[in-house]
Design a protein around this nucleic acid. Structure first.
Lengths: 129, 129
DNA sequence: TATGGGGCTTCCCGTGACAGGAAGGTCAAG
DNA sequence: CTTGACCTTCCTGTCACGGGAAGCCCCATA
């Protein structure tokens, strides 16, 4: 199977699949003409990575998860540890964004949004001293 | 005032301040020895940008906000529009992260996290078919 | 058989917002 | 006079790709 068909099936751009091959996440063999020939295991790996990425795992984490996925002697504790760390990052990010949102919402609510120059948003950003 | 003192006062790394000068957010004059000489207006602008950045505005938005800040004939509507757009981005991001968090939390809860290979997290990432 | 239009390949540059580090000039203190 | 802390520019790397150029390859149609 050629790359565009593989891309269609796993829902990733062909560019991304080439990149994943370059960094060693998948290693599809080549046809005589040099075209990549994707096997079902390649599609499996790509789908796995696509899902992990959509949950926000980094490429490094995807690589580790993929190796665990392909290792029948894995310990689920190792998988869980990676996921827990990522969950921590997500919570941290959620906290940051919530704080930004709170401040911004206040400022936006306080701003008249008309033709006058007076603006609580700019005042909120300006140095206090 | 030299860069390290300016950095200390506005709470930004010197590297970042040089970068902000490079992209034209601040234009401190130079001493005879070539050192940047920060005036209070430069410190004001840097502090303003630092705060806007901490609220998640992009550099482009900071540039626009800074121009409005420095323009006494501005309309607060223009400021508010930038802030509203950004608020929309934050809400979108919060939504994405909340969805990731929900899925991940389920998977992590379902995983025993022991020495056995059976792992609901990996199952959740694996292709269904 | 020529040709035209896809699809495939590699290679290189650009993204955002900086961080790290090398090479070298400058300044104040001892 | 030297040392060490500044400062400067310049180059490279980050993360996860996207865009686009130059050049094969394959198939269908005239």
């Amino acid at each position: 199977m050629n790359i565009s068909e593989a891309a269609r099936r796993v829902g990733l751009p062909a560019k991304t699949i080439r990149y994943y091959e370059e960094i060693g996440l998948v290693t599809p063999p080549r046809d005589k003409n040099g075209y990549r020939a994707f096997r079902s295991r390649d599609l499996h790996a790509l789908t796995f990575v696509a899902r992990a990425r959509s949950l926000g795992f980094t490429i490094g984490e995807c690589r580790a998860l993929l190796q665990l996925y392909q290792d029948p002697t894995r310990a689920s504790a190792d998988v869980k540890e990676i996921a827990r760390r990522h969950l921590g990052r997500i919570d941290a990010k959620l906290g940051e964004l919530a704080a930004m949102r709170a401040t911004l919402t206040e400022l936006v609510a306080a701003c008249a949004g008309d033709q006058r120059p007076d603006c609580p948003i700019l005042k909120g950003l300006a140095p206090t001293a």
